[in-house]
């Protein structure tokens, strides 16, 4: 790989109770690279993204972020989890905004990882002018500038997702992860949202990893596609090398 690796995952296993979710997964994602993860339900896509953002502690294996080891054999080490988390923006499948706050208050929360308590409280009550301008610029970029002072629960699902993207960008992240960003929108909007994520990541030089149900969108829009099945990497190829046969095997139903 030509770029320096941003995410390095080595032999990572993760299980919930007795169920093995991830089985000795190893992969690297280069800085500024754009990757789609595809695979059937329960393949471990969400768990893998959570491992990358420090939202899940694997049982074993090593995870490095920008060359710094933060998880080794299941124990935390290196930079604090908090600073790690603030470096990685995460767009959740259900958007996960605070419903009865305004969009601007949700977006300023993106800087929690870099701010102290009183500064955060102040930004929630009345953000400073510079914050307001930056939030507005981000909301304009994702297409909902006029919704800045609306309450989140008055927004449609698609608008909430864009607010969630703006919150992740307000973190000034080095990487952007999105879990099933198009699970609940129609095909035209799915394409638009993915194009937005891709072009924003390009503009800002962010590493982008997205999990998707739909393999055709992944192959059309992303240069590299990782197929996950039963907690293992089934294939990890440039999208032009992924064949129909591979996809058939990836999504094959067990007898």
């Amino acid at each position: 790989m030509s770029q320096a690796a941003y995410f390095q995952v080595e032999q990572v296993s993760f299980s919930i109770a007795e169920t093995k979710i991830l089985k000795e997964i190893s992969l690297e994602i280069g800085a500024g690279e754009q990757v789609a993860m595809i695979g059937p339900s329960g393949a471990g896509k969400t768990s893998l993204l959570r491992v990358l953002c420090g939202g899940v502690t694997p049982n074993s294996g090593t995870v490095k972020l920008d060359g710094e080891t933060y998880l080794k054999n299941g124990a935390q080490g290196g930079p604090s989890l908090r600073s790690l988390r603030s470096k990685v923006g995460f767009v959740h499948q259900d958007h996960a905004l605070v419903p009865n706050l305004r969009v601007v208050q949700n977006v300023v929360a993106g800087k929690f990882g870099q701010r102290g308590f009183w500064n955060s409280l102040r930004s929630l009550i009345q953000p400073v002018q510079r914050d307001q301008e930056e939030v507005f610029a981000l909301l304009e970029r994702v297409g909902i500038g006029e919704k800045m002072f609306h309450r989140v629960d008055s927004l449609s699902g698609g608008q909430q997702q864009r607010a969630a993207i703006a919150r992740a960008l307000f973190q000034h992240p080095e990487a952007l992860l999105a879990d099933e960003p198009v699970a609940s929108v129609d095909p035209a909007r799915a394409q638009a949202v993915l194009n937005l994520l891709i072009s924003i990541s390009r503009e800002r030089g962010l590493t982008l990893a997205v999990s998707l149900h739909d393999p055709s969108l992944a192959l059309d829009l992303f240069p590299r596609v990782i197929g996950l099945r039963e907690g293992r990497v089934h294939f990890d190829l440039p999208s032009c090398q992924v064949s129909e046969k591979m996809l058939g095997e990836l999504y094959r139903l067990e007898e």
Partner: peptide, 20 residues
């Protein structure tokens, strides 16, 4: 979900309380 999201962007316990 929303409170977990605030943790995952680096929020402390007290920030999760005031922000969510």
């Amino acid at each position: 979900q929303s409170l977990r999201a605030l943790r995952l962007l680096g929020g402390t316990r007290s920030q999760v309380v005031i922000g969510g």
